[in-house]
């Protein structure tokens, strides 16, 4: 991958060299050589990006757990047996259920709580405002290691270890501050005159929020929801520690359980990985444009 960067700068200069020789042209046009170089680099980069995932898909078709060592053999005995085995004889659907409960729980709870907060900090300057924003900011950079041990102790005291509620609460501790921050940025873009008009027409502050601002903020809410969902779905550390019984594993934990010290069912693991990756990536592709816009807006506008 390092070679890619080196070539990149070469391509940029190539662009200019080819360009200066030509008549007036729009920005972004370039000569044949530049074009070929750009395509070449992008094709190489695409292959690098695609290959590990494609390889996983390919390996998932091999019936034997050691097929990854001699992949050439897979062509001859390609089969979907792994998939049917995973779907029928493993806890796949239990894991799916846990993952969905935990991710959706985090999303709903996190966005609800974060929306009220984001609105409050966006519209009102109350005493303690700056400190509060600072707390929201610092919370975002907590390494997992900071909260892991105390959370474990507290949840153990409350007997919430190995329960969905416990994990949802833990995820909310990271999702809520981030979403509040992001939604504050979004609410800031909705004109205050709308609130005022609502108040003049006799809505309560909560009425203004629920009936005017929330519907207008739908795109922002959607971004916050996607973000919470995706982070909760992909989280590894807390899930590995707090979920103990194997029918409550989320996918991130369940996938690890295929490789134990004694046995590594790599073919089944690859098949499960593919089954997880397809819907999640599809979802991601649907929302990615909004996600990117929201992330940068939350980051730069504050």
């Amino acid at each position: 991958m390092t070679t890619t960067t080196v070539e990149t700068s070469a391509a940029v200069t190539g662009t200019g060299a080819a360009g200066t020789a030509r008549k007036p042209r729009a920005r972004g046009e370039r000569g044949l050589a530049g074009s070929l170089a750009s395509h070449g680099i992008l094709i190489v980069a695409s292959i690098v990006a695609l290959f590990p995932v494609a390889w996983l898909v390919f390996l998932s078709l091999g019936p034997d757990k050691d097929d990854y060592l001699h992949p050439g053999g897979i062509w001859k005995k390609m089969t979907l047996d792994n998939y049917s085995f995973v779907l029928q004889h493993t806890n796949f659907f239990d894991w799916l259920k846990s993952s969905l409960i935990v991710s959706l729980g985090t999303t709903v709870l996190g966005v609800l709580v974060a929306a009220t907060t984001g609105y409050a900090v966006s519209r009102m300057r109350f005493p303690g405002y700056r400190k509060f924003m600072w707390v929201l900011l610092v919370t975002q950079m907590f390494p997992v290691a900071v909260l892991m041990v105390p959370m474990y102790q507290i949840l153990a005291d409350l007997e919430l270890i190995d329960s969905y509620v416990g994990l949802i609460l833990v995820y909310c501790s990271t999702a809520v501050p981030y979403c509040a921050w992001l939604l504050k940025g979004y609410f800031d873009t909705i004109p205050f005159e709308i609130d005022e008009a609502g108040r003049v027409d006799g809505l309560t502050p909560f009425g203004t929020f629920a009936r005017l601002i929330l519907p207008l903020a739908k795109p922002g809410l959607a971004v916050a929801a996607f973000y919470s969902f995706i982070t909760a779905f992909g989280e590894v550390a807390f899930a590995s520690t707090f979920m103990l019984s194997d029918d409550k594993y989320t996918f991130a934990v369940g996938l690890q359980s295929f490789i134990s010290e004694h046995d590594a069912q790599r073919n089944l693991m690859a098949a499960t990985a593919v089954l997880i990756a397809i819907p999640v990536s599809a979802f991601f592709y649907l929302v990615q444009k909004n996600l990117v816009a929201g992330l940068t807006a939350g980051g730069t506008k504050g």
Partner: peptide
């Protein structure tokens, strides 16, 4: 679309792909 694939697929899935490789 292809280049954002590593971001689209959850990390815990792709890391295992790398581990096999």
């Amino acid at each position: 679309l292809i280049l954002i694939l590593p971001w689209a697929v959850p990390t815990f899935v792709t890391v295992f792909g790398w581990r096999f490789m």
